[in-house]
Amino acid sequence: MANSSPLGIFDSGIGGLTVFRSIVEQLPGYDYLYLGDNGRAPYGNRSFATIHQYTWECVQWMFKQGCPLVILACNTASAKALRTIQQQDLSAQHADKRVLGVIRPTAEVIGNYTQSRNIGVLGTKGTVQSGSYLLEIEHFFPELKVYQQACPLWVPLIENGEYDKPGADHYVQLYLDQLRKQSADIDTILLACTHYPLLQEKIKAHLPANVNVVAQGGIVAASLVDYLKRHPEMETRLSKAGTRTFYTTIDDTAEFNHHASLFFGEEVKSESVDVSVGCE
């Protein structure tokens, strides 16, 4: 990677691979580096300070591998760490680098999916408690009514490969019922966690046919395409040899590779890394 400047994709685990897949579909010729912090996942129940520390360590490690631009393909990291990284960390240490998240691009378009103007947001406890979606959606679509529901058991189910098992249906139904009890007018549900698309078919099966279920991958990918068009100074820095490298912070790369391949849609071979080594 010494002569490469890949586009970095970060997630607390493997969920970000659903976004990565969509980005590759729209921008296939670029070099990519994916990092999953599986060794410290899930992030959802951790404090703001801890999530910022973990995310910034991973971002710095990706910078050291040559990434000039990193996408936080993780809603919890975007909600709890992105602003501090953008407003403080980058200007102090890496003014020539950029870090983008997934919440703002989603908030910019989510209002286009609803007729009733009532939407539900399903996310981790950290994302929901941050209030980030409420603030961002209010900015772009002040007329929308937004209802949130934390789904703390979904990420562990997915990370452990249980998302397609019959036992997952109970927990899918549980959180959907809690969300829909808040309003009978919800006609659009946002999967505000990049892990949740693996449960999308089960989620749809437990909802009326007229309720839209919106995943973020295509939205974030389209936003990135637009960003690179508007920032040619960054686009020209990204190398374009079509390479994809995968890293994880757990020792068992075989387990990561197995689950990651299901998320990414093709075979994944990864290396294990210690992101804390050499971080400032």
Score class of each variant (00 low, 15 high):
Gln149Val: 06
His195Gln: 11
Asn112Lys: 15
Leu144His: 03
Ala192Met: 07
Gly278Trp: 01
Tyr32Asn: 07
Lys97Met: 08
Ala81Tyr: 03
Thr76Ser: 05
Ala73Asp: 06
Asn257Phe: 01
Ala205Phe: 14
Thr194Met: 08
Thr114Asn: 07
Asn257His: 00
Asp274Trp: 05
Trp56Met: 09
Gln149Leu: 10
Val24Gly: 01
Val275Glu: 07
Ser22Phe: 05
Val59Met: 05
Ala222Lys: 15
Leu174Ser: 11
Arg98Thr: 13
Gly39His: 07
Arg117Trp: 08
Gln93Cys: 13
Leu190Gly: 08
Asp11Met: 01
Val155Met: 10
Thr188Phe: 08
Glu57Trp: 13
Ala81Cys: 02
Lys97Trp: 06
His94Arg: 07
Lys125Cys: 06
Ser272Cys: 03
Ala184His: 11
Ser130Val: 02
Leu17Gln: 00
Ile137His: 05
Ala168His: 10
Leu144Asp: 10
Val273Asn: 05
Ala2Phe: 11
Asn45Glu: 15
Cys67Pro: 01
Gly36Glu: 02
Gln26Met: 11
Gln173Asn: 12
Tyr175Arg: 08
Ala150Gly: 14
Asn118Met: 05
Lys80Ile: 01
Thr106Glu: 06
Arg40Val: 15
Asn38Val: 05
Gly265Met: 00
Leu33Tyr: 08
Cys193Ile: 01
Gln26Lys: 15
Lys202Asp: 12
Arg180Met: 15
Pro42Ser: 04
Glu271Arg: 07
Ser223Phe: 09
Ala192Gly: 13
Lys269Arg: 10
Glu266Phe: 00
Val128Met: 06
Ser239Arg: 07
Val128Trp: 03
Leu153Tyr: 13
Val277Arg: 15
